[in-house]
Design a protein around this nucleic acid. Structure first.
Lengths: 206, 206
DNA sequence: ACCTGAACACCGTTCAAGT
DNA sequence: ACCTGAACACCGTTCAAGT
């Protein structure tokens, strides 16, 4: 195997290094990124359109580890559940990336496959197009919101002197639990799936 | 009433003007903001610690219109529902602000009052501290995720040539519906409240 | 107490020049 | 085809100076 004359830069190398920076510092800078790649900032523009595209590439990398379940092997609710959990975990693995993603429309194919899979599963569940979109949106919103919750610096909320006892007591009870974020997410997901399953039994007349 | 010698700048004036800029352009800049206030960028530092604080001030302004319901006048589920909808609407009124808020811990008193009220309502519902925090987190995650969904430029997802028919069909059916975002949110909220209500009937032994 | 203007270090992006 | 180095317009923040 002859080694091709060194490319030294590639979109995936750029995305992975940027992701490493975001994981470490919560943000990244073109000069910073270039330095990490032993290159000059302007070199990046040979492979990428600008900073915005790098962010989209990071989304693709973060979602690349998702393995979509075989639809045939189980009921549609289990399929939706498996997809949602995979999706949530991909976000949660790079919590500090999430705020960077929330401004852009999703164009990344790897991510769009998640929505294809959700749509297929709800179709199997008998959801008509409008109800299908609603179901997808509800799951998507909850996944993203829960992932953002998991992303929060250390605590999402900083209770102050005026906070109510009912709130402070709850914070103290829960915040040191180790897998709080994931168990809270799966708990809420179960809620949503239970009700979606009940809904799928009706004739869905608008 | 003697008019005090012109202050010309104040934290609320700064926040409101910044909010206007974000509503219009999705972002704001210190020089931009200063110009809008007929002032120099460095003047802002007499009232504010920096850009980050201005963002927190905007959160406070956006949430200032929330009116929390009287807890006594109804059951706890209706209270939670009313709070969640008020909270969601405050976000939805300034969709382009949301991405700017997702990086920071919440310290704003106006916003924290929302969590106090939620905590009180769930306490009334019989939720023990750990379950109370979980319930608050689930509602909060769904509100934020749904608000982000409503914030997306025009469409959250950009289907491409490879998208599945099941997904495309759903998109076409739903995207032109006028109040899709809010009705989807309230629908999912009903799901969550239904299950939370059922949960509150159990003795919650962990 | 509040505002200005100059200054600083830094950012994203472009482009002619090299190989 | 890919990388460099200089350049540009712009950003957030600081600070001495004015009133």
């Amino acid at each position: 195997m002859t080694r091709p004359s060194n490319p030294k830069l590639s979109t995936t190398a750029i995305a992975d290094t940027a992701l490493k920076l975001v994981d470490a510092h919560g943000e990244f800078t073109l000069p910073q990124l270039a330095k990490e790649l032993s290159v000059t900032a302007s070199s990046l523009y040979n492979h990428v359109d600008g900073k915005a595209e790098i962010i989209e590439l990071m989304r693709g990398r973060a979602m690349s580890t998702i393995s979509l379940p075989e639809a045939k092997s189980q009921d549609w609710q289990s399929t939706v559940r498996a997809i949602a959990i995979e999706y949530w975990r991909s976000y949660a693995q790079h919590p500090r990336l999430i705020p960077l993603l929330t401004s852009n429309t999703v164009r990344d194919r790897t991510t769009l496959r998640v929505y294809d899979a959700l749509a297929e599963a709800f179709l199997t569940g008998g959801f008509q197009p409008a109800e299908r979109l609603r179901a997808i949106t509800i799951i998507d919103s909850f996944v993203l919101g829960s992932a953002l919750d998991a992303a929060a610096p250390r605590e999402v909320w900083e209770a102050d002197a005026e906070s109510s006892p009912a709130f402070i007591e709850a914070l103290e009870a829960g915040l040191n639990e180790c897998n709080r974020a994931e168990s809270t997410f799966t708990h809420g997901l179960t809620f949503l799936l239970t009700c979606l399953a009940a809904e799928s039994l009706h004739p869905t007349s608008k």
